[in-house]
């Protein structure tokens, strides 16, 4: 503001004209050419990317259009032989289908979806119960350089190894480290927690359990240390339906 007040209006106009003239000469000298070349380079570059990334796959697909279709809807002249051949295929297909069906568990089994945190309890091919569960949180707990634990639920086919009522949780080292507490000796009283696992627990081996929870609001979310948590009613149903050796499919 001060400068505008001090400088006469004629001088401001002369300065403005100088700037405009300078910009014009720069534009004419080299800026016009540079921008022109830049635009050409960008067009060529984008064109090449489009040609290679998009047009080539489309054109490759189009080129197949020129080949004749192999499906001819042929009507066999010799019906006897074609019928025999058809019977042979159907027989073999049924044989394979029977073999596949034999893989199906005849007793009760449970399917657990760790992505959606849902469970499906089956007896043969009949769905008995379904509902929400909680599975591994995928947390990687790092304690120092060599100590780390990953809290994920194992995937694949597992079996029920054991069943217990009123289970007691023997807290492992990570449970103390995660809470910022000092790790007690192996059989210290503070390691044993009563009631946190619910009324029942079904062991899957390697320390993984299907058990109950106090944190029912987290059902349907991945929050556990690798175990599968169910609510009280679902847990009771699962406990009563599955027996030792029953299949557990986790994915």
């Amino acid at each position: 503001m001060k400068n505008n007040l001090d400088t006469p209006p004629g001088l401001i106009k002369i300065n403005q004209n100088k700037i405009i003239l300078y910009l014009k000469s720069t534009w004419e000298k080299w800026l016009k050419q540079v921008i022109k070349n830049l635009i050409i380079i960008i067009i060529v570059l984008l064109g090449t990317i489009w040609l290679l990334f998009y047009f080539v796959p489309i054109a490759q697909e189009m080129s197949l259009f020129f080949l004749p279709e192999t499906h001819k809807e042929f009507i066999s002249a010799d019906n006897m032989n074609s019928d025999k051949f058809k019977d042979k295929i159907i027989k073999n297909t049924l044989k394979i289908q029977r073999k596949l069906d034999s893989n199906f568990p005849r007793s009760a089994y449970i399917i657990i979806n760790t992505t959606e945190n849902r469970f499906y309890l089956y007896s043969g091919k009949r769905l008995i119960r379904k509902g929400m569960c909680s599975t591994g949180s995928y947390t990687l707990l790092q304690a120092g350089e060599n100590k780390q634990w990953i809290f994920k639920t194992p995937r694949g086919l597992m079996r029920i190894h054991g069943k217990t009522t009123s289970p007691v949780w023997k807290k492992p080292d990570w449970a103390f480290i995660e809470e910022g507490l000092p790790v007690p000796p192996a059989n210290d009283d503070s390691r044993f927690e009563y009631g946190t696992l619910g009324d029942y627990a079904l062991s899957l081996g390697d320390g993984y359990l299907i058990h109950g929870t106090l944190y029912k609001r987290f059902l349907g979310l991945p929050v556990t240390h690798g175990c599968i948590r169910l609510n009280d009613e679902d847990l009771e149903s699962v406990y009563n339906t599955l027996s030792i050796g029953s299949k557990v499919f986790i994915y």
Binding site: S137, Y138, Q142, I150, P222
Partner: peptide, 23 residues
Amino acid sequence: KEPIIYKKAPKDTIEAAQQVFTP
């Protein structure tokens, strides 16, 4: 494929309480 959440062991219970994670 595996949405791993990295967590450093807390020094004490106050830090542990601050680390509580809800998906």
